[in-house]
Design a protein around this nucleic acid. Structure first.
Length: 104
DNA sequence: GTCGTGACTAGCC
DNA sequence: CGGCTAGCCACGA
């Protein structure tokens, strides 16, 4: 079994950082971008998640916007809300509440 | 709350 | 190889 999915160091870093987030916690695109030394690449981060070959391995549903909004999800925003709600994250009107409390 | 601009990468022709 | 477009976005006015 040789999983040689490299893609780009950028994407790998994004996935690795996202994977290290504990359950019941969430993060924002901007914060995640800063973690990977690319504070201006919040977009690239979102793009990386969209193409992530580790879909079930990378909890992309734990990533929300800085505004606390769910943003989007490759499998459907409803799914994202359902998963977060299932982990104990309170979603009100499609937004994480209180976001700061669940921020990693 | 809305509008417009900025910054980064991947994919396609 | 070179240029252009789109994306799970963010911030300031």
């Amino acid at each position: 079994m040789k999983k040689k999915v490299i893609g780009t160091p950028f994407q790998q870093h994004v996935w690795q950082t996202l994977k290290r987030i504990p359950k019941g916690k969430v993060t924002t695109y901007q914060r995640l971008a800063k973690m990977i030394k690319r504070p201006r690449s919040a977009r690239a981060v979102g793009n990386a998640l969209n193409v992530n070959p580790y879909a079930p391995t990378v909890p992309c549903h734990r990533v929300v916007r800085s505004n606390g909004e769910i943003g989007g999800y490759a499998s459907g925003p409803k799914k994202k809300i359902s998963m977060l709600s299932r982990e104990g994250v309170r979603i009100i009107r499609g937004k994480v509440t209180p976001l700061h409390k669940f921020l990693y």
